[in-house]
Amino acid sequence: MAIKFDQPFYSLSDETEQNRIIELWEAEKHGGLWEANNRLPLPLTFLMALIVLTAFMMTMPIWGQRPTAHDFVEHVALMDTPEIQAIEDPVAKMARVHEIAYQRADSRVKASLERHPITWDDLLNIAPEIKEAQASGKYPLDYYSVLADTIVLANFEGNPTADGSPERKQPWWDKGYTIDVFYVTYFFIFAFFVCKRLPHFSRKPDMSSAK
């Protein structure tokens, strides 16, 4: 059962252990079945690595961010302009507001506006709340999430600010990711040990005498 580390990518088992496993392998048929000692094909190894990379890249909280009050400040400002006031149809009003606000927005806000369209009625509801939050100045506007026709102070515990309090906005990295890094690392170390304790894949069991 000794573990050897002189050729870790060949096998972590010593010769005696490898022979013992192969002999057992060759002696037994499980209800007429047996297993070959083939390697994980190289393309699959790369696919595994790609999956891990994708898992982190695709799930980062920068994707799927919730809309914040900050995203709609321009909309609120535009509501009372003569141009918008002159339009009667609420759908047309909103379309024009959106068009102008979208042009003025930076790329990050643009993405959020595309993903979270709101109606004129929603805007009428959130506008006083956004103005109140602006006037109070207690928190930055991007600390407030827009939930349909209301805004609420987000419950995120993001990165620490200068005074030590946490930001109330979704961080691009959080402790869930840190846990994942360790968890995935431990898994692959464990999986490496489990697989490399087996005889090297070049040693094919001869099943002709299996019972």
Binding site: V52, P61, G176, Y183
Partner: peptide, 23 residues
């Protein structure tokens, strides 16, 4: 309204389900 870090953790693990599937 679960903790965001828990969702982040779960979401990565969710994609990693592809590893047993591929195997």
């Amino acid at each position: 309204p679960l903790p965001e870090w828990l969702k982040s953790f779960a979401s990565v693990e969710g994609v990693l389900i592809l590893i047993p599937a591929v195997a």
